[in-house]
Computed example of a mutant assay.
Amino acid sequence: MFQDDPKTLVSTAWLATHLKDPDLRVLDASWYLPGSARDASAEFAQAHIPGARFFDIDEISDHRSELPHMAPPIEKFMSRVRDLGVGDGHQIVVYDGAGLLSAARVWWLFKLMGQNNIAVLDGGLPKWTSEGRELTAEPPVIRDRHMFARRVDAMVKDVTQVSHAAKLGDYSIIDARAAARFRGEAPEPREGLRAGHIPNSRSLPYTDLLNDDQTMKSADEMRGIFQAAGVDLSKPAITTCGSGVTAAILCLAMERFGKSDHALYDGSWAEWGAFPTVPIATGEA
């Protein structure tokens, strides 16, 4: 049975009930792969959940890095969320236009910055819309509010740390990309990347965790899916994907079934696949 949890996942019914709460803040974190022919910002301007603010994961990122949408410096994060009128004492709900694609990335980013009062909207904008709930094109009224952030370094890993983990086997490394990309049988959407996966990682496509309506499966179902994928849940976990977006869905899933010792490889395959000195594996795990 689904349970609303303001620290992980809430239903559309929960959000509808709390939408006018004075300390609720809603974020639209829609994002799409290049070539998808979708413009998240333009779609937000046309229709969004009332009061929602647009969270641009490409802009609110570390522009000093050549890698896509890497976690921003803490000062930039605090400045941007203040500009969105999001601050201390707010309950945040984040959604996206795909159902569940990029919203979990923003959930993870807030947790990385020491913020725990944030939940993903289960089923996202498609479910909200299919239920005939209110949409608007009106921009929100924004008032600055300070947020104190404190980066939780244990929640993120870099290429050196992941390389050590792959060699030592002291972490379960879990890959959220499609199985064909994991095996090296399908090309990467970004040019110039080798095909395959991090040695000693396990394949668990994020889509396996979702129902047909893009809501998340139950906590017990998701735990079973991790175990069926060969993930050793007794070890701390590192999640990875193409560019650090859908890897966060695996983190959210683990949080839902009570596993909190997880971290996200921020560079993911966009970095590993371009790095000439790190090994890659192909085929099944």
Results as ranks from 00 to 15, higher is better:
204 L>K: 07
31 W>H: 05
252 L>D: 07
140 P>C: 07
164 H>P: 01
81 V>H: 00
151 R>N: 06
154 A>C: 09
202 R>T: 12
147 M>I: 10
171 Y>H: 09
211 N>D: 15
50 P>E: 04
250 L>V: 09
196 G>I: 00
253 A>V: 06
26 V>W: 05
59 E>T: 15
24 L>T: 08
265 Y>N: 12
38 R>F: 05
208 D>I: 04
276 P>A: 01
246 T>K: 05
176 A>N: 04
182 F>T: 14
32 Y>N: 08
55 F>V: 08
27 L>I: 10
97 G>Y: 03
113 M>Y: 08
220 D>A: 13
26 V>M: 07
84 L>K: 03
150 R>G: 12
34 P>D: 00
131 E>M: 12
113 M>E: 02
66 E>F: 12
18 H>R: 13
277 T>D: 15
169 G>A: 08
264 L>M: 15
41 S>I: 03
148 F>Y: 04
87 G>S: 02
219 A>Y: 00
161 Q>V: 10
181 R>N: 11
211 N>Q: 14
185 E>H: 00
86 V>E: 00
104 A>S: 01
107 W>S: 02
137 A>P: 10
183 R>S: 14
144 D>E: 15
166 A>G: 10
101 L>W: 00
105 R>T: 06
1 M>K: 11
238 I>W: 10
263 A>Q: 11
127 K>M: 12
98 A>Q: 14
180 A>F: 11
227 Q>P: 02
66 E>Q: 15
30 S>D: 04
177 R>F: 09
90 H>Y: 10
283 G>T: 06
124 G>L: 03
284 E>R: 14
103 A>W: 04
